[in-house]
Design a binder for these strands. Structure first.
Length: 671
DNA sequence: GTAGGGTTAG
């Protein structure tokens, strides 16, 4: 744990205080001073104070000793605590309880249970505090099985667990997703009569939600008091977690309309629900609404809502959230900072992301990964590698996501050799075992370099069965290099793995079309038709002033559609005049709505660019986000527009950023 | 003056 500046400041004043203590110190003052050491987790202060107690002959006072044991435990020094404990005689229930709870919280299951046994053998009976300390300790160290066992054992030994014991036993069970144990605790709480206690109920709802038992969760909620806000919050979060976003929204609105006193947790939950279930626009609206009804976002709300802004590249909203965080003093929070780095990077503002990253007072692996992922997505391999080197000199250890960012940056930028080197060394150097994602990066990397055979060999040698991402990466490379036979192999695997994904059929037919193999194109088209497959509707977003506009392919509902198409048609005329020809490799992209679409209109990214052109002054950069990969035709068209209109155009597709300028794209026409 | 402590949002 990184000590926050305030804590270290306070612990240094505690040290000063300890040094200024008169000798011999007041025995009644010492225990509360030890408590301060515990609260600040300052092992140094505890040891100094211990010395003072010892030289003053007070280290055999039972109260001083108990407080000392407690302080050492809170400072994570089991060894110091146990040494003091060993020298104590006689030992009351207090030090016994402290040391047992300490071992439990450290996850030392056997030692804590053995100590409990020793305690009973020594004729000191455990009390409710002993049992609760043990349960809470196991809960904290994630020993869910022990938590449940202890709850039953204390019950068997004649102690009635209270609501606090039950609800503190449930979180670890929930985290372990052990619904059998959770059910047993549920049964136990019914037997003892705590099943209607508000805290027990919300913990039960949380547990069933985390275990994927949405039905049981709803039953617990329905059977008990329905006015309790924490239970309602747990229900909303549980529905969201189980992919039931629509139900979560319905429940939330019902609570709101009933006049329930929803709090910041409730609003954060529903915003998170939208942000995590692809309802980014709704997340944005709810975030606004919560403030309208007078609930102020806190430092948890911010990192929950920012991914939604990042997804739809709502830079203005992201910026104002940044300002809000500054005003409220959330900016030093590592979650807030990391989410801001991610938001700026995904909104195309990679330099702002770096400024934010550099300003963070505390960083964790997520912060580093956000910045590295940003560079990777922008195709900035040099910056990514440089930052990765910096990270290795920091104390933060790379994890599997870090390596994915680095490998993907190498792949995006065509740095084949470096990528290969990092991949070969990732286990021995960083202790990261290659996962599916890393193999996908490598297939991408080799494929981009035209080493299709090597990519295929790597897939064959993988220790696990290749998934759709891997074969998809190979298929994309086959399209770029026009390799029909490997492309067919990859496509066949993909048709097995994801029979409903139209994109794979489109890619294969693009390969056929580029080679003039029209039989193949017809066959694919027929297969798609007979399976009723349609391309996912393309969807793009662009932010004009502070309003996010959403444009759907072939959808005419945007109020300015007439002006947009007029502008695009004028451009099309210019393009034809200057020798631009529509590329035929992509004919099947629009197999369904071919008739509807004109040469330049129709695709959502073109519509978004058109909207940007008519709504902003000449020279203003445009930023567009797309839900699919950009198609080759649009890519060529936007390159043209960037030169003809003298605009920088940033398009983020599902994979990366395309930075169009002066008729060229930062991806080097490979994506 | 010494031991345990609830639920919900990342």
């Amino acid at each position: 744990m990184v000590p926050s500046p305030t804590v270290s400041c306070r612990s240094s004043s505690l040290l000063l205080f300890i040094r200024s203590l008169p000798l011999p110190p007041d025995p009644f003052l010492l225990p509360s001073t030890f408590k301060a050491c515990a609260a600040l987790r300052s092992l140094r202060s505890a040891r100094q104070l211990h010395c003072i107690a010892a030289v003053s002959g007070l280290s055999s006072d039972p109260f001083v000793q108990s407080a000392l044991v407690h302080a050492y435990l809170k400072c994570d020094s089991l060894r110091d605590a146990h040494r003091v404990f060993d020298r104590m005689a006689p030992r009351t229930v207090v030090p016994w309880s402290a040391i047992i709870a300490g071992y439990a919280a450290a996850g030392r299951v056997h030692q804590s249970i053995n100590l409990l046994h020793d305690m009973q053998t020594a004729g000191v009976p455990p009390n409710l505090i002993t049992w609760n300390g043990l349960i809470a300790g196991f809960n904290r160290s994630g020993c869910s099985r022990q938590t449940a066992l202890m709850l039953r054992r204390m019950h068997a030994e004649g102690f009635l667990p209270d609501a606090a014991s039950i609800s503190s036993a449930l979180p670890s069970v929930a985290d372990a997703e052990d619904v059998r144990l959770g059910g047993q605790i549920h049964g136990c709480s019914i037997k003892i009569g705590w099943q209607t206690d508000a805290c027990v109920v919300s913990a039960l709802i949380d547990m069933y939600g985390k275990c994927g038992c949405a039905t049981e969760m709803a039953r617990v909620f329905d059977e008990t008091a329905q006015t309790d806000v924490p239970s309602a919050n747990a229900l909303v979060a549980g529905l969201s977690r189980n992919g039931l976003a629509a139900d979560a929204l319905r429940a939330f609105r019902r609570f709101r309309d009933r006049g329930m006193a929803l709090n910041v947790v409730s609003w954060t939950s529903i915003v998170t629900c939208c942000a995590q279930n692809g309802r980014d626009m709704e997340a944005l609206e709810l975030f606004r609404e919560m403030q309208v009804v007078g609930i102020e976002p806190n430092s948890v709300t911010i990192p929950c809502v920012l991914p939604a802004f990042a997804n739809i590249a709502a830079l203005m909203h992201g910026r104002s959230t940044h300002c809000f965080s500054l005003r409220k003093g959330f900016i030093g929070d590592v979650y807030v900072g990391s989410a801001l780095v991610d938001m700026y990077a995904k909104c195309g503002r990679i330099k702002d992301a770096r400024t934010m990253f550099d300003a963070m007072p505390v960083r964790n692996v997520v912060s580093w990964n956000a910045m590295l992922g940003g560079y990777s997505m922008h195709g900035k391999a040099a910056e990514c590698i440089e930052l990765f080197e910096l990270m290795q000199r920091s104390k933060e250890k790379p994890d599997f996501i870090t390596l994915t960012c680095v490998l993907s940056a190498c792949a995006q930028a065509g740095r084949t050799k470096e990528g290969q080197l990092y991949f070969d060394r990732m286990y021995q150097e960083y202790g990261v075992v290659p996962r599916m994602e890393h193999y996908a990066c490598m297939v991408n990397l080799l494929g981009r370099a035209g080493k299709l055979r090597e990519a295929y060999d790597l897939i064959e040698q993988m220790p696990m069965e290749a998934d759709a991402c891997i074969w998809g990466a190979l298929l994309s490379s086959c399209r770029v290099y026009g390799n029909v036979s490997l492309g067919e192999t990859a496509a066949e695997k993909l048709f097995e793995l994801e029979p409903g994904n139209a994109g794979n059929y489109v890619l294969l037919s693009n390969i056929y079309a580029a080679k003039g193999m029209w039989d193949g194109v017809d066959k694919i088209r027929g297969a798609m038709r007979s399976m009723g497959l349609r391309k996912d509707p393309g969807c793009s977003w662009t932010e004009i002033k502070d309003k996010v506009h959403m444009l759907l392919a072939g959808d005419n509902s945007h109020p300015q559609m007439k002006q947009i198409t007029e502008r695009l048609e004028k451009l099309a005329v210019e393009m034809r005049r200057l020798g631009y020809l529509p590329s035929t490799d992509f004919v099947l992209q629009d197999v369904e709505d071919q008739e509807k679409e004109h040469i330049l209109c129709g695709h959502s990214e073109k519509l978004a660019v058109g909207l940007g052109l008519i709504s902003t002054s000449p020279g203003t950069p445009l930023r567009v986000i797309k839900n699919l990969r950009i198609c080759g035709d649009c890519h060529a068209a936007i390159k043209f527009v960037s030169r003809f209109e003298g605009r920088e155009i940033l398009v983020r597709d599902t994979n990366r950023f395309h930075h169009f300028k002066d008729g060229a794209c930062s991806c080097g026409d490979y994506w």
